[in-house]
Nucleic acid binder design. Structure first.
Lengths: 256, 256
DNA sequence: CAGTGGTCTAGACCACAGT
DNA sequence: CTGTGGTCTAGACCACTGA
């Protein structure tokens, strides 16, 4: 009898279980996960949900699919992934790495027009600005400049920001990540970055700017995260089907 | 009447047609694409292929889905996307931007151990190293350092590398992008970067390292692309389901 | 050859938006 | 309420892999 727990749809339950099994090493990298037929039997479902779950893991880079051969566990990537967002502390936990944070500044103030635009509030509306240093294995790794809407900011002020991840706390408050958009580029370290990340001013940093909205599409966070590139990279991997290339030119398909 | 062209599966045909319609502006940003039911009727297929096609476009950021509401066309992102790889020239064409390239150097030589490792060949095997400057609207935008296996390199030597994108040429030769892995970080410009990209030495650049393999998984390209961050960014956007966060903590779901 | 994943059908019921 | 997308079933046939 299938557990039928939570309100999660079957394909999500299967996905989460497989992800947990992979992260726990119960399926070794390079080894096969159970076949679709086996998963159907294990969960007593049809192929639909099973394929949905495995496809999702494949796009997230957990497994590698190819026709005819069993689906195998991918060699785990070194850095974070760009096609899915995991809060820093949760990512660090999943990698079994020590992490920490220091709050550098915390300011509740009236928003400038530019900030308001990014957060989708009216200029002059109250927002919370937060600057934190994030550590990985004791090394200063990232400077996080976040802005929150008044509603979320008020919640955060009641919380010990130097403690464990704030995302868990916000989730408990009913605030969670629905639609996330990220832009990645590079930027020279300014004086603040340089001091806290212990690099020279002007040194190249990897910047990720992120807006996060709830499931309802209402933005509640804007963040500018700057990483030391020697300590963190962002990865992605995917299959690109043969015909993605030319919408106009079919082209010869001569395979030696 | 459905064209029934190529050997492409239906869901790919539908996806390509929708992508073409979106890029051509036949569906305006923010506007709805045809409903699943309409697409089923138009293509005379069941919902399976239609949902597959739309889901694929959604993960690539072309459309935005939400339950109950029609699926709408996303506002086109400024930069390239990180969760799918499009060769530079093809990306530039899709954005209707002028582009060009200059080959800085081209070397066929025996591989060093490190290079061989990345390309998956034996140390000492012959490889082709290529350094090119890529231009966008006349501005030097990216320096590309690529290494190719002997087989692919031999093909490239027969080709005019300053002409239009080499990826189209390789596709005609039967070489195409199957499995692609990318790593994004930041790096200081070296002397070569600085001279060609017209920035100061040490200026921050956005680096994308990529290995490309065929559908058979055999690697044929390794590339180190360095972008001026003021001229190019990489974007991603996605939905993150509410339960992705805590595998352990269900948490209250109090929504004000 | 048997087993794998890839594709597709024709239904069904549900959750949610907007009227 | 109707129409939308979200999920799922129980079949089917195909393409590919490897023994």
């Amino acid at each position: 009898m299938t557990p039928a727990r939570h309100g999660l749809p079957m394909h999500r339950q299967i996905e989460e279980q497989l992800r947990a099994d992979i992260e726990a090493g119960r399926y070794a990298p390079g080894e096969a996960i159970p076949s679709e037929a086996q998963l159907c039997a294990m969960w007593e479902v049809s192929r639909g949900p099973v394929r949905h779950a495995v496809a999702s893991l494949a796009t997230q880079g957990y497994v590698r699919k190819s026709q005819g051969r069993p689906t195998t566990v991918r060699i785990p990537p070194i850095g974070q992934r760009v096609d899915t967002y995991t809060p820093f502390s949760q990512w660090a936990r999943s990698q079994r790495r020590r992490y920490g944070q220091r709050t550098i500044s915390l300011t509740m103030h009236m928003s400038e027009p530019e900030q308001a635009e990014r957060l989708g509030v009216r200029p002059g509306d109250r927002i919370l600005d937060m600057v934190r240093l994030r550590l990985l294995d004791g090394m200063p790794t990232m400077i996080e400049r976040s802005s929150f809407t008044d509603e979320v900011g008020t919640l955060l002020l009641k919380f010990d920001l130097d403690s464990d991840g704030i995302s868990d706390y916000l989730t408990e408050c009913g605030i969670h990540y629905g639609v996330v958009e990220q832009t990645v580029d590079a930027i020279a370290a300014d004086e603040l970055d340089a001091r806290w990340l212990e690099v020279a001013p002007g040194a190249p940093l990897l910047r990720v700017r992120r807006t996060a909205a709830g499931d309802d599409g209402v933005v509640w966070e804007y963040s500018d995260d700057r990483y030391r590139p020697d300590l963190m990279t962002f990865n992605s991997s995917f299959r690109r089907s043969a015909a993605d290339a030319g919408a106009g030119t079919p082209g010869a398909r001569a395979r030696p």
